[in-house]
Design a protein around this nucleic acid. Structure first.
Lengths: 231, 231
DNA sequence: TGGCTCTGATGTGCTAGTATTTTAGCGGCG
DNA sequence: CGCCGCTAAAATACTAGCACATCAGAGCCA
């Protein structure tokens, strides 16, 4: 029997079991606490969380749809290798969505939106000054999410997040994010300004450069950590 | 006990049951054979297909993720109302993806791609001449899918299809597609020409007009069939 | 008559357990 | 020595069934 590196804390019996198992497994996989290739025994997981196999099975089925685990029928379920093709497609998805979003928003800039985005950029600036990376990351998410909401496509934000598992795992291989933070902030500021002044093309240009940074890091990481990555 | 308007044919015992149940239910929902609001009893469906409740449950869970059924915890599972917001977001998703695709393809047009697309357009023209609507529809799908494949994002084609359930149901409310077929063909031809000559902006323009036709029909249908639509 | 409470029926979420399928590993044969 | 087939272990897909949550509707009260 293998040791399980997962948090052993018990589930909340007042909530449904399956979503909780899903969340825990997803966090563990994305943080690489469960390394690619790890076999996920349904029976073992069920015992570990103190539930039967059905909620575990439900969780694993959802994870399989996101591509975070591979289910080999009648045989085994394993944490998937990081898939470069899947990561590229997830990045394509995000790029396509956010370009269309900034173009839409720039057509009729809403002052309330601009105010919110500017506030988020300013807060990011303060977080950078005190080197609070966790807060910086959260604010970055909020900055982009705010635009989905304004465009009336919040479900597409959720969709995009649900398909970013491979990218998120790559991000966890790449701790020294700090050097790029100033550049990211500049990009954000330029995007806000372009939307505010109704320059859709300019917003698209800045967004493309902003996201291309992520893509470059992806390709780089895949070369430096070939064990985790399936080519 | 209500009558079930589903095909009673038995399942293939050599394939897994859950995916078959899923496919049948999805087809029935999208074709509106199962009207929005219909209660889907797990026990009844299990009996109907000659399987136990688990594969039915699996199928219903996937359908719920696509938004085609609503699961009310501990109470009931129903075919969802057609959701205009979801349809708009699915349309936004498709528009964003295909615009980014044609722009990418126009940057470095591949002769083999152009040849395939042109062949598909020509075949559509022939199908239109003999009023073969089913074939026209299939060729339309193939035309767009071919571009996803060329851009290396076939999984995003699948993703886009999986989220088009609400739109597909609206399409089934709207039989007289024939009037627009010639316009659709013209759009396709212009998109091919624009990609072939490397004019990304032009391709985007034609694609936008092409897709805006669909969106206009969506809004129209929602007004004409208010019973099925949740606003 | 209108609104609140309680009860019963219904159905989901989960538990327990069976059966079929897959694959690793071993032994024999060419 | 290498390839093929057999065997057995293990995991998934499925079957059967229970328990608690939810809601419709009857009955009671104001």
């Amino acid at each position: 029997m293998m040791r399980q590196p997962l948090p052993p804390a018990e589930l909340d019996r007042n909530r449904h079991a399956a979503p909780q198992v899903f969340e825990r497994l997803r966090d563990a996989i994305i943080s690489l606490a469960l390394a690619p290739g790890t076999v996920l025994s349904r029976a073992a997981l069920a015992q570990q969380y103190g539930v039967s196999q059905t909620p575990v099975r439900d969780a694993l089925m959802i994870l399989a749809e996101e591509g975070l685990v591979d289910i080999f029928p009648q045989h085994a379920t394993k944490v998937s290798q990081i898939n470069l093709l899947a990561a590229r497609q997830a990045h394509f998805l995000r790029r396509a969505l956010e370009i269309e979003i900034v173009r839409t928003l720039a057509e009729a800039p809403d002052p309330a939106l601009i105010q919110d985005l500017q506030a988020l950029v300013d807060e990011q600036r303060r977080a950078l000054e005190v080197n609070d990376l966790a807060r910086l990351s959260a604010l970055d998410q909020a900055f982009h999410q705010r635009q989905y909401v304004e465009a009336g496509v919040m479900e597409l934000w959720v969709l995009q997040r649900r398909h970013s598992g491979h990218i998120d795992r790559l991000r966890h291989l790449h701790l020294p994010l700090l050097g790029k933070a100033a550049t990211i902030l500049d990009d954000h500021q330029r995007i806000v300004d372009a939307i505010a002044s109704g320059r859709g093309e300019a917003a698209e240009t800045h967004l493309r450069r902003h996201l291309s940074g992520t893509l470059a890091r992806i390709e780089d990481l895949c070369q430096r950590f070939p064990d985790y990555v399936r080519r």
